[in-house]
């Protein structure tokens, strides 16, 4: 058990406000970089500048604004636990939801929707896709099977 009294939250070094303004400056620079990233036209560059920098920004905010670095270890533990559970959720769900085909099954409804949408985008002219993607235009022409995986022998 800790001998610390409550309310020790303020007892680490109090930074001058200029410290926070500097961090803010770094954050804004990073924001600009992530904004400019897609202009290079490389998918890898975009992904790195978009998500890599998002993690850096989040780290800066957590460390300098939320002062997690001087917080007790227990707080780290439960925050990390909830992040890890989200990774677990992604890992467990993505084999079913992120793919439309697998061993002895295929998600025909989803594949049909992708095919329909892509051809509609092509028809309406290239990258701008469905202009005014309103509900009226969206109605599929024929009703597709809504079942998830009717492929034979799906056990």
């Amino acid at each position: 058990m800790s001998d610390h009294a409550a309310g020790d939250h303020g007892h680490h070094d109090i930074h001058p406000p200029s410290h926070y303004v500097r961090i803010w400056g770094i954050l804004l620079t990073l924001l600009l970089v992530s904004f400019i990233g897609p202009w290079f036209g490389h998918q890898i560059v975009t992904l790195v500048t978009a998500f890599g920098i998002a993690f850096v920004k989040a780290y800066l905010v957590i460390k300098h604004f939320m002062h997690l670095d001087v917080e007790k270890p227990i707080v780290h533990y439960f925050l990390v636990t909830s992040v890890v559970f989200m990774v677990l959720l992604f890992a467990g769900v993505s084999p079913d939801v992120m793919h439309h085909e697998g061993t002895n099954w295929s998600n025909m409804a989803a594949e049909a929707e992708i095919a329909r949408a892509l051809s509609a985008q092509e028809a309406s002219g290239g990258e701008h896709g469905e202009h005014g993607a309103g509900a009226a235009e969206h109605k599929p022409a024929e009703h597709k099977p809504a079942e998830h995986k009717p492929a034979g022998g799906d056990h």
Binding site: A109, A110, E113, A117, H143, A146
Partner: peptide, 11 residues
């Protein structure tokens, strides 16, 4: 959760 609209009931 509607595959016709690009969703997934399994989700």
């Amino acid at each position: 959760f509607d595959p016709d609209k690009g969703g997934d009931p399994i989700l």
